[in-house]
């Protein structure tokens, strides 16, 4: 079963196209990351799924059905900013959320404890720090232990301990079989937490699929010699790498992680009468992968 399926969703704001026909599926039981730089359309997309925004064209389904408010009640959603009544306490705010979700108030102490807000439950929302507001929003999502969670930049504004706690919580929920859809501009976060990923760039879907395939990184071997064209000829006979690049008077050979045979390369070139003046193994950084995917 698909938790969410999107079919050619477009959203225009005047002449600005925020989403240019996005389609993908979120299978049940996955942690599905929506990755993209700021302004790539992540929040717009989640807003459409939650009926906050109207798509210019296209359709989507929740739980394989035409979506309505009863589907939204089964999903714990935190979109963009923590939205609560400023003049009410955390607990009163959660009572309102629980009533709208038709979940009953019994679960409120549990979710407050999960995000460490039990002691401050009677304080007004307006007195909360940014991190506490964020945690209250996550607590509200968890009300009634829903099978599906949608989290938009859930670790935004949290301190390192808070970030680690939220990531651990997401992993735990995944192990319990829940489906989690998470938007993030942090590649490293998506890589650590998600099983699947969709990459958005300026409103277009660049890639979607298993996180290990899409975000697979490579080792790069940089070699140099005084006669670069002879080196190139020698390397072409060598094989074993996925592809290579010429960069100035260096060649870059790309290998799957941990598979670069440095000694073999050196020996091979030497046998061909080429003495290397540079042999260097580089790990490709996640940042450069992100730039490559979104530029």
């Amino acid at each position: 079963m698909s938790i969410l399926s999107m079919e050619n969703i477009r959203k225009d704001y005047g002449s600005v196209q925020a989403l240019k026909g996005v389609s993908f599926n979120v299978p049940k039981g996955t942690v599905f990351g929506i990755l993209g730089p700021n302004g790539s359309g992540k929040t717009t997309m989640l807003g459409i799924i939650m009926d906050i925004l109207k798509p210019s064209s296209g359709t989507y389904k929740l739980f394989d059905e035409v979506p309505n408010e009863t589907h939204r009640r089964q999903i714990g959603t935190f979109l963009e900013t923590p939205n609560f009544y400023h003049y009410l306490s955390a607990e009163r705010n959660l009572k309102i959320a629980a009533a709208i979700k038709e979940r009953g108030e019994g679960d409120i102490p549990r979710v407050l404890e999960l995000v460490n807000l039990t002691q401050r439950k009677d304080s007004r929302f307006s007195t909360y720090s940014l991190g506490m507001k964020q945690r209250l929003a996550i607590a509200s999502c968890l009300l009634g232990n829903p099978e599906v969670l949608i989290l938009d930049e859930p670790t935004n504004g949290l301190d390192p301990v808070g970030i680690a706690e939220i990531r651990a919580l997401i992993k735990k929920l995944h192990l319990e079989g829940k489906t989690i859809i998470m938007a993030s501009h942090l590649l490293d976060e998506v890589e650590k937490v998600c099983t699947h990923v969709a990459i958005l760039k300026k409103g277009e879907l660049v890639a979607t699929g298993d996180v290990n395939e899409i975000l697979a990184t490579e080792d790069i071997v940089e070699i140099g010699a005084s006669n670069i064209s002879a080196l190139k000829a020698a390397v072409q006979q060598l094989g074993g790498f996925s592809h290579f690049n010429e960069q100035g008077n260096l060649l870059q050979l790309f290998y799957p992680v941990g598979k670069a045979p440095l000694e073999t390369i050196n020996q091979h070139c030497f046998n061909k009468g080429i003495v290397l003046n540079k042999l260097n193994l580089k790990k490709k950084s996640l940042e450069s992968k992100f730039m490559e995917l979104t530029n």
């Binding site: 939650m50 009863t70 939205n83 709208i100």
Partner: peptide, 21 residues
């Protein structure tokens, strides 16, 4: 207008009200 200021109108709908409600 408080609902719009605090964006709770969005949250009410996200949590499971319809726009009509």
């Amino acid at each position: 207008t408080n609902e719009f200021t605090y964006r709770t109108h969005r949250q009410n709908i996200i949590d499971g009200w319809s726009r009509e409600q």
